[in-house]
Lab assay of single mutants.
Amino acid sequence: NQASVVANQLIPINTALTLVAMRSEVVTPVGIPAEDIPRLVSMQVNRAVPLGTTLMPDMVKGYA
């Protein structure tokens, strides 16, 4: 099972992602792969992401 990126805190809309804001977890459905965490740092989310939410490619500006 592949680990996905999960919000480690509430991430407000247009907030730049940080290492502290993300964690890796095996979840269903699978979201952005955990190995992409370094690439996600400083990218912005295009919606509010609640704690525990799996990050999907369409939630991160410039990711997809």
Rank of each mutant, 00 (worst) to 15 (best):
N1S: 15
N1E: 15
Q2E: 13
A3Q: 09
A3K: 09
A3R: 09
S4G: 03
S4M: 02
S4K: 01
S4W: 00
V5K: 03
V6S: 01
V6D: 01
V6I: 12
A7P: 01
A7S: 07
A7W: 00
N8P: 02
N8S: 12
N8I: 06
N8H: 06
Q9L: 13
Q9K: 12
Q9T: 13
L10F: 15
L10I: 10
L10P: 14
L10N: 15
I11R: 01
I11Y: 02
P12Y: 07
P12K: 10
P12S: 08
I13S: 13
N14K: 04
N14Q: 06
N14T: 03
T15K: 08
T15A: 11
T15L: 04
T15H: 13
T15G: 09
T15R: 07
T15N: 08
A16P: 13
A16V: 11
A16R: 12
A16K: 14
L17M: 03
T18I: 06
T18E: 08
L19R: 10
L19C: 09
L19D: 06
L19A: 08
L19G: 05
V20K: 15
V20N: 15
V20Q: 14
V20S: 15
V20H: 13
A21N: 15
A21Y: 15
A21I: 08
A21H: 15
A21T: 08
A21G: 07
M22T: 02
M22A: 02
R23Y: 05
R23N: 06
R23Q: 05
R23K: 11
R23C: 06
S24G: 11
S24P: 14
S24A: 15
S24D: 06
E25K: 08
E25H: 07
V26S: 08
V26K: 07
V26G: 03
V26E: 11
V26F: 13
V27W: 04
T28S: 12
T28L: 10
T28K: 08
T28C: 11
P29K: 04
P29V: 05
P29L: 05
P29Y: 00
P29S: 03
P29D: 04
V30A: 11
V30G: 08
V30H: 13
V30D: 09
V30E: 12
V30I: 14
G31C: 04
G31A: 04
G31F: 03
I32N: 01
I32H: 00
I32T: 01
I32M: 03
P33Y: 08
P33K: 07
P33E: 03
P33R: 09
P33F: 10
A34I: 06
A34F: 05
A34P: 05
A34W: 06
A34T: 05
E35Q: 10
E35I: 12
D36I: 07
D36Q: 13
D36E: 15
I37S: 02
I37Q: 01
I37M: 12
P38T: 09
P38S: 12
P38V: 09
P38D: 11
R39P: 02
R39D: 06
R39M: 14
L40M: 04
L40T: 00
L40I: 12
S42E: 08
S42M: 11
S42D: 12
S42L: 09
S42Q: 11
M43K: 09
M43V: 04
M43G: 03
Q44R: 13
Q44V: 13
Q44F: 14
Q44G: 05
Q44E: 11
Q44T: 15
V45T: 09
V45A: 04
V45N: 02
V45H: 03
V45Y: 00
N46D: 07
N46W: 07
R47I: 14
R47T: 11
R47E: 09
R47C: 11
A48Y: 10
A48D: 15
A48L: 15
A48F: 10
V49Q: 01
V49Y: 03
V49A: 02
V49W: 03
P50T: 10
P50Y: 09
P50Q: 10
P50C: 09
L51R: 15
L51K: 14
L51M: 15
L51A: 15
L51C: 13
L51G: 12
G52E: 03
G52R: 00
G52F: 03
G52M: 02
T53L: 09
T53M: 13
T53I: 08
T53C: 09
T53Y: 12
T53W: 13
T54Y: 00
T54M: 02
T54S: 02
T54G: 00
L55D: 01
L55N: 02
L55I: 14
L55C: 04
L55T: 01
L55E: 03
L55V: 08
M56E: 06
M56P: 03
M56D: 04
M56I: 06
P57V: 06
P57F: 07
P57M: 07
P57W: 12
D58P: 06
D58G: 09
D58E: 13
D58M: 09
D58A: 12
D58I: 09
D58R: 08
D58S: 10
D58V: 09
M59Y: 12
M59K: 00
M59N: 04
M59H: 06
M59W: 11
V60W: 00
V60K: 03
V60N: 04
K61R: 14
K61C: 15
K61S: 11
G62C: 11
G62Q: 08
G62E: 09
Y63T: 04
Y63Q: 05
Y63M: 05
Y63A: 05
Y63E: 05
A64D: 13
A64R: 14
A64S: 14
A64L: 13
A64M: 13
A64C: 15
